[in-house]
Design a protein around this nucleic acid. Structure first.
Lengths: 197, 197
DNA sequence: GCTACTTTGGCACGACCGTACCAGTTTTTC
DNA sequence: GAAAAACTGGTACGGTCGTGCCAAAGTAGC
């Protein structure tokens, strides 16, 4: 298990390391999370990484959780934002895309989407991520369901999972294009789905 | 580019290395393909791997292609097999699953499926795989289309891609379960799709 | 059978990597 | 304010990796 920090300053340092690791994850994937890279990014000595985390896997797990929580709270924010005012069909489609792929972030967009799917594919080889991934997936399903309700569409679990699968499948297959635009590929089936109810 | 072998014996050795690399890929994913591991598996000296392949990426590309071609020819075989005799709905569903996930191979099944999806997700980080992946995906689409025709179902490109996305999405999401059974998860939407036409 | 080219395979270099160690410092606890 | 606990940070070890090197062995063309 992860060594806990029992001092406020210690906890702050720990968080700096987690944030640095999460940044690296977003930029270069799982392989970019290494003790030395994390320490350098956080501007802390190498040994601090092994002091606050029992192993590299602990650090990786913390980074994945950090990033996942950020994504989910950003998704929640976007949803609440739209729930307040008016909304037409296409705004809801974009919201669903934001929930599933993240809010478009300029040049880093593909990287960010890629990491979302690397998480799935790497989980069988890093089983310690599985419970975390399941918890986050469940929360995401809830957000999707809420959005569907907002759209007046059926929001039972089967529909939600169907929608997610449709998007994920399109995205994965878009990754091998010469100029991948997963968001565009995912939009089409989403539109059809919301149209037909 | 890959150093060519210009002697029959050299070509044989080269193939041994490719086969060994493909084996390792199937057992431990991309990270398992390393010069030393490949050489040992092929029972050849380390230096032979750098003699026949200019870089590790060349070796990886050859392994991915080797494995992909095997999968496609196995798929073609299964399709022709079924095309001859009679076939009911559920046999066709299983054939589609075989085409998309491989023929179930006992205890190695999950690993084998995992590699199929690791290929997609790793392609943005290994751009040299992209053309190869696109070519193989196109061939797979053809096989799926033929199968749909066999089922008397519409087989236009949009339908084929929709079906593939549905399966891929289910599979990817199944990977984080505690006892992943991607094939079972993918079967359900496939049944519905073939039922509704 | 001689020359040129290909192949072989042992070896080592330099670069990373995860992790352990530990003397020193700071912070907390009582 | 002293004892204990938490933290700091420089350093080093043992391991693995991709790749280059090169003398020896094999093979092909003439």
């Amino acid at each position: 298990m992860t060594a806990a920090a029992s001092t406020p300053k210690g906890e702050r340092r720990r968080q700096l390391l987690v944030a640095a690791a999460a940044e690296l994850l977003g930029e270069g994937g799982f392989d970019a999370i290494r003790h030395r890279a994390v320490a350098e990014r956080a501007d802390l000595p190498l040994a601090s990484t092994t002091y606050y985390f029992d192993s590299l896997d602990d650090l990786i797990a913390a980074a994945v959780e950090h990033r996942g929580r950020l994504e989910l709270s950003e998704g929640r924010r976007r949803l609440d934002e739209l729930a307040g005012g008016g909304h037409d069909r296409s705004e809801l489609v974009e919201l669903l895309l934001d929930l599933l792929l993240g809010t478009p972030a300029g040049d880093r967009e593909l990287e960010s989407i890629l990491v979302r799917y690397e998480r799935f594919v790497t989980t069988p080889r890093r089983p310690y991520l599985a419970p975390l991934m399941r918890a986050m997936s469940a929360e995401l399903e809830d957000l999707i369901a809420e959005t569907l309700r907002l759209a007046g569409a059926p929001s039972d679990r089967d529909r939600v999972r169907h929608l997610i699968a449709l998007v994920d499948g399109r995205v994965v297959n878009a990754l091998i294009e010469s100029e991948p635009d997963p968001r565009a590929q995912a939009r089409q089936p989403l539109r059809e789905l919301l149209r037909d109810g």
